[in-house]
Write a protein that binds this DNA or RNA. Structure first.
Length: 848
DNA sequence: GCAAGGTC
């Protein structure tokens, strides 16, 4: 019997598709990666009996990244990224997706791809084929691999797809490859360039990363555009005639308002001395407010933000949780219409006995209305409740979001809100005024969606044509137009959706990004207010190349990519062309960065004027400034050079000692009390002097043969906790505290408390460690017979044992040492490197 | 330390 492997885009879909195709007769087991399940049954394939295996991936198997040095910010020019080699890497290594798929494909003859029917899904099809090609022969053959095309997760649609299998569309898949490549190259090049440029110049930038992206930047652009409208807004005065009649009712003027005072005065004079208003016309009409469409992701995010004050990122996290706990259906969908066979009543019935929703649910069941027809995007059914929850099941936000989903669902099955609108027209000496009265006829869906309830404004009196109504007061009122408010998050989501910026799944990510990067802040009412940094960036792009921030940029790129998807253009040609355009844009941006910089200059303070004098520069001997804001840096304003410092912790001046190589004053970095610490030279830290010393190294990694702070002078033994580290004597807080610190991991061993001097000797113990000497004052010596100085091994000498803090770890090492010794000595990077005989020739070889 | 797109 042939074996057929079928793969869906996510575990939940594999389960429901298997259930449909097996008529509920599949058996399930968990896959070895812990995330995916396999559903198996026997059925028929191409008119013969076959064994089916249905499993899934978790989205993309691979992601795109640069190779080797192109991932380093320091080892390549951002401009090189437009031509740098790239490679596919496992998107989530811990899922072991390729290995999992390959293992499940063993023994299978056929592959049927049930990935989502969009371009990303088509791309994942080829990722899956690639992953199983070592198990299934001729994977590219149209009689081996099939593609199921389905537009709804219904019995009928899925079985129809199974009976009408087609082939995966390579063009669509390639268009996604092109998008990935373009986004990677453009995003990383711009991000690295502008981050380095501005961080190297300004001390008070409140962002450790100044990112650029084809989605996040236009998203920020929307927020800044509104900010600009507010800034440019000029209030205008206007006037209107306000008539109050008896009984107390203010009428609406047909001219609404007039922007010239003199003209407004003319109308005021016409009306002001009148005593009566004559009713000219009374018209009534029935009006409706539509019940909502079934709920999709974007609408859920909009409502959560605008109605519940829950941001889209959080809203989706909560929805995800509600989904995995079985309270709601799958929360990521664009579809706003219920499938034909959806058991709407069945869902409602679950709420019949609820104290919160019972009465409404029963009313709706008794007066069932067919829901409105929305759009079927062929992905997932709309978001609906799946089972009744008790309010004690959830925290406050979860409860509110669940309540919204339940009420929205019931709202879609309710009647429209119906009301009667009556407009009365008054004539006052030739000027027309009106009064409108709305009378509720049927609250409809607002009975459940109470926040949309109808604000009544029924008139106390009903008028008839010909009535003469007594006027109480006439006023000429002056007012001013007001500026628009900042963009609400809900407005922003709508704008992104309209311009095709991001997808339902990535919209919250982009909004989150621009807040995390300090480009916008979220104000009350979830309004997005751009920060100085956000404003300056967008204005800068507008000065240099407005297309970089235009919302149409994304759709223009999509248009190019669609040429690939439709097979009308070659993948290589389109990608090459698009990359070249952005490369030129990048070069132009770099060349004209001064235009953006002039805006930064006004808003931020330069490194030279921020920070405080700290330690001396080795080149000019002047004091450099210490900028503590992240990322911490030293800046020499005379040499106009910036040196980055270790992340976190503090870097203090280390006894005014100097690096023998470059004359820079040494600093002692410390991550905090009892934490890691080491001395370092700020110049060497940024520009490693030796080939075997990597960037961002302290003196404890320096192979200078004679400097008293180097690894050569102070290294004691290989680390007891990690593979490649060396324990180095750390004197930075001596004589208060002596310790051995690993130059690679976090391992710290406190030694020789109260000693006045500790040193590392030239000779070694038989265990391979360097011998050490500890000197104490007479009154504090721990050694017997009043001896104040002793030489020995921190691991082997019995009189040292009580003076070493990390006994347990040390013991472990002892146990290991006999095993590890030979190995350790043989490897040059382990243990303390031997001091070379000819120091000068060794030194010469080290210099780059 | 970078993008955007899937999804866990």
């Amino acid at each position: 019997m042939p074996n057929v492997l079928m793969v869906a885009e996510k575990p939940s879909l594999a389960a429901s598709l298997a259930n449909i195709l097996s008529n509920g007769k599949s058996s399930s087991r968990k896959g070895f990666n812990g995330a995916c399940s396999i559903h198996e049954w026997t059925g028929s394939f191409r008119n013969q009996p076959a064994k089916f295996k249905f499993t899934s991936v978790c989205g993309h198997i691979n992601g795109l990244d640069f190779t080797g040095k192109y991932n380093s910010w320091d080892r390549c020019d951002p401009c090189d990224l437009f031509g740098a080699p790239t490679e596919k890497k496992e998107a989530t290594p811990k899922l072991k997706m390729p290995a999992f798929l390959s293992s499940e494909a063993r023994g299978c003859e056929y592959l049927v791809l049930w990935l989502d029917c969009d371009k990303e899904g088509e791309n994942i099809c080829f990722e899956v084929m690639d992953a199983v090609s070592d198990q299934i022969r001729n994977i590219r053959s149209p009689s081996v691999t099939y593609r199921a095309r389905f537009s709804a997760i219904t019995d009928k649609d899925i079985k129809h797809a199974m009976n009408n299998l087609v082939q995966p569309n390579e063009n669509e898949a390639r268009s996604v490859d092109a998008r990935q490549e373009l986004d990677l190259r453009v995003g990383c090049a711009f991000t690295r360039f502008q981050t380095k440029f501005f961080q190297g110049k300004y001390g008070d930038l409140d962002s450790s990363l100044i990112s650029f992206g084809p989605c996040q930047t236009p998203t920020l652009g929307f927020c800044v555009q509104r900010h600009d409208e507010i800034q440019q807004f000029k209030p205008e005065s206007f006037w209107y005639v306000q008539v109050t009649i008896e009984p107390e009712l203010k009428l609406d003027w047909q001219r609404v308002r007039i922007f010239e005072k003199e003209i407004a005065m003319i109308f005021y004079n016409i009306v002001k001395d009148q005593r009566e208003a004559v009713v000219e016309q009374v018209t009534s009409k029935d009006s409706f407010k539509s019940r909502p469409l079934a709920l999709n992701t974007v609408e859920l995010m909009r409502c959560a933000s605008a109605g519940l004050g829950i941001g889209p990122h959080t809203a989706m996290q909560i929805a995800e949780k509600l989904y995995t706990q079985g309270y709601i259906s799958y929360p990521r969908t664009e579809t706003t219409t219920y499938p034909a066979n959806f058991d709407l009543r069945g869902v409602l019935k679950q709420f019949e006995r609820s104290s919160d929703y019972g009465e409404d649910a029963r009313n709706i069941l008794n007066d069932f209305v067919t829901p409105r027809k929305g759009t079927d995007c062929g992905d997932h059914p709309p978001i609906t409740p799946m089972k009744l929850a008790h309010s004690s099941d959830f925290d406050s936000d979860t409860r509110r979001l669940y309540d919204f989903i339940v009420r929205h669902f019931m709202g879609t099955l309710s009647r429209d809100l119906k009301y009667k609108s009556t407009t009365t027209t008054f004539n006052i000496n030739g000027e027309t005024f009106t009064a409108t009265s709305n009378v509720l006829i049927d609250a409809g869906y607002t009975k459940v969606m109470t926040w949309q309830a109808f604000g009544k404004n029924e008139l106390a009196t009903l008028f008839q044509v010909g009535d003469r109504v007594k006027m109480k007061e006439v006023k000429l009122i002056e007012s001013q137009t007001g500026p628009p408010s900042y963009l609400t998050e809900s407005d922003l989501i709508s704008l992104m959706e309209k311009h095709g910026i991001g997808t339902d799944a990535s919209i919250p990510v982009h909004i989150n990004n621009i807040t995390q990067r300090n480009y916008v802040t979220i104000e009350s009412g979830r309004k997005l207010k751009p920060t100085t940094l956000g404003i300056v960036l967008v204005h800068g792009y507008q000065k240099i190349d407005p297309e970089l921030v235009l919302p149409t940029m994304r759709s223009a790129v999509e248009k190019q990519l669609n040429l690939i998807a439709h097979g009308t253009a070659d993948f290589r040609a389109v990608t090459k062309h698009a990359i070249e355009i952005f490369r030129l844009k990048f070069l132009y941006f770099v060349k004209n960065i001064a235009n953006m910089d002039s805006l930064f200059e006004v808003s931020f303070s330069s490194l030279a004027e921020s920070g405080k004098a700290h330690s001396r520069c080795g080149k000019c001997r002047r004091y450099m400034k210490y900028i503590q804001q992240k990322p911490a840096r030293l800046h020499c304003s005379h040499c106009d050079e910036t040196y980055v410092l270790p992340i976190g912790g503090i870097a203090r001046v280390y006894r005014e000692l100097k690096c023998p190589l470059d004359d820079f004053e040494l600093l002692a970095w410390s991550s905090g009390n009892k934490g890691r610490s080491f001395p370092f030279c700020p110049y060497c830290y940024n520009n490693p002097p030796f080939n075997d010393m990597s960037r961002a190294s302290g003196c404890n990694n320096c192979t200078h043969p004679t400097c008293q702070h180097s690894l050569i002078s102070l290294g004691v033994s290989s680390c007891i906790e990690c593979e490649k580290g060396v324990l180095v004597l750390d004197c930075t807080s001596s004589p208060k505290n002596w310790k051995l610190g690993c130059n690679s991991c976090d391992c710290i061993i406190n030694i020789f408390d109260d000693a006045v001097k500790v040193s590392v000797e030239e000779d070694t113990c038989e265990c391979g460690s360097q011998l050490m000497t500890a000197v104490y004052k007479q009154e504090k010596t721990p050694f017997p017979d009043g001896i104040t100085e002793k030489k020995g091994c921190v691991f082997c000498s019995s009189e040292f044992a009580p003076l070493i803090e990390k006994h347990k770890a040390v013991e472990n090492r002892r146990l290991n040492s006999s095993r590890g010794r030979g190995r350790g000595r043989g490897r040059s990077h382990r243990g303390r490197p031997k001091v070379p005989k000819d120091k000068m020739s060794q030194l010469a070889a080290y210099f780059v």
